[in-house]
Design a protein around this nucleic acid. Structure first.
Lengths: 122, 122
DNA sequence: TTGCTATTGACAACTCATTTCCATTACCTG
DNA sequence: CAGGTAATGGAAATGAGTTGTCAATAGCAA
């Protein structure tokens, strides 16, 4: 059976507090800045369990390590800051996306990533 | 100075003939099926040179190796087939994309990837 | 054709994210 | 509190993509 450990609580709290998708390394660093004791190994192990149990969702970005965020959010997209490399949530979705698919293609889902500068870097 | 070799011509011709973004491995396999002698090492080396010289553009997909296509095409997006794992070009672009960026964010570009089944797999 | 040198190919080596190992630690139930 | 065992941490291993090495090959200018 699953136990509630300091480390696992730190991971979930770090994600909750940041309000944006975090990579394993970001989670480790943010938690440690917060005084938590936590190894990268543990972050990976816990993320895997939390994704499998449906608590977290994976957010992928080309050429980058995966990020993680709470699952069950409304359909949304992501913003990647080219300067600080952080990722943010973007609510909403262009209405006519799937109609772009050429004849013969069946679009069932999609990914949209905006890029540029976040408020802190702009 | 740069030389025109059988291998380099085969790579460009393979890309041109396929009409869709190809990964290094796809290029190697398609060229070899076509009777060309070509190693994966050479594909990587040539792609690097062709991208640096501006002849090719890189197309990235989360969790996947990069694909390459001719540069200088009109602004467009991509379709990834979940079944055969191939990538295709999608002309057009939702008009209001950058307006999705929350206040304070400066969106300078974006990536849109449709997913589902290609005509051959649907 | 000859000679110079860019290019190739096979394989080793590297990178980087992620996973495994295993001895130690710390939840938690009784 | 004590015992059983899930969880942790650090190092080593993995795996996939990509790059480096170097001897052999092949464009290309003379």
């Amino acid at each position: 059976m699953q136990r509630s450990t300091k480390q696992r609580r730190a991971i979930q709290e770090t994600l909750r507090a940041s309000g944006r998708p975090l990579s394993p390394k970001e989670i480790e660093e943010l938690a440690q800045e917060n005084g938590e004791v936590l190894s990268l190994t543990t972050v990976y192990r816990s993320l895997k369990i939390l994704v499998e149990s449906g608590d977290l969702a994976t957010v992928e970005l080309p050429g980058q390590p995966a990020r993680y965020e709470a699952s069950g959010l409304d359909h949304h997209h992501h913003f990647h800051c080219d300067d600080c490399d952080r990722m943010f949530d973007v609510p909403g979705c262009p209405s006519d996306v799937h109609s772009l698919a050429p004849k013969g293609f069946v679009a069932t889902h999609h990914e949209l990533i905006l890029k540029g500068q976040c408020p802190a870097c702009a």
